[in-house]
């Protein structure tokens, strides 16, 4: 196979975990710079902070302000080594457990604290 276009095919692509569950999108890619080595794509960043950073400083400030309002101190973003990529197609599969990612904290929190307390929130297909 030939080359992939980072901005066309990789950045913003849908990510799925080992179980094929959707775990966000590639919100940012980091290059690693080491002395004497050529730079290489090393890290996938998932999370609202990374997205806000892409829009601009004002968005980042807004993002931080909103999170401060809810009392979050640590930034809820995940950094996954690019080596975890298993497959690149319509979606990109990462060799990770979605539930373990910091960027999935809100999903987990909503599921356990809100959704499961409302009748009909859990079970098999509707």
């Amino acid at each position: 196979m030939g080359a992939l276009h980072l901005s066309h095919d990789v950045i913003d692509a849908q990510l799925v975990d080992r179980q094929q569950e959707k775990i966000g999108r590639i919100d940012e890619l980091l290059l690693e710079l080491e002395d004497g080595q050529p730079p290489r794509v090393a890290t996938i960043v998932i999370g609202g902070v990374a997205r806000a950073r892409r829009v601009g400083r004002w968005m980042l400030a807004l993002h931080r302000a909103v999170h401060a309002l809810f009392g979050h101190r640590e930034e809820q973003e995940s950094r996954v080594p690019f080596d975890a990529v298993r497959r690149i197609a319509d979606t990109i599969e990462l060799d990770v457990e979605g539930d373990a990612l910091a960027s999935m904290r809100l999903e987990r929190w909503l599921a356990t604290h809100i959704v499961l307390r409302i009748p009909g929130g859990s079970g098999e297909r509707k």
Binding site: Q14, L15, E21, K22, I23, G24, R25, L106, E107, R108, L110, A111, I114, V115, L116, I118, G120, G121, S122, G123, E124, R125, K126
Partner: peptide, 15 residues
């Protein structure tokens, strides 16, 4: 990039 489907139970796509 969240999980989504009106055919899933809400705890499978909480957001």
């Amino acid at each position: 990039g969240w999980n989504w489907s009106e055919n899933l139970k809400p705890d499978k796509d909480a957001r």
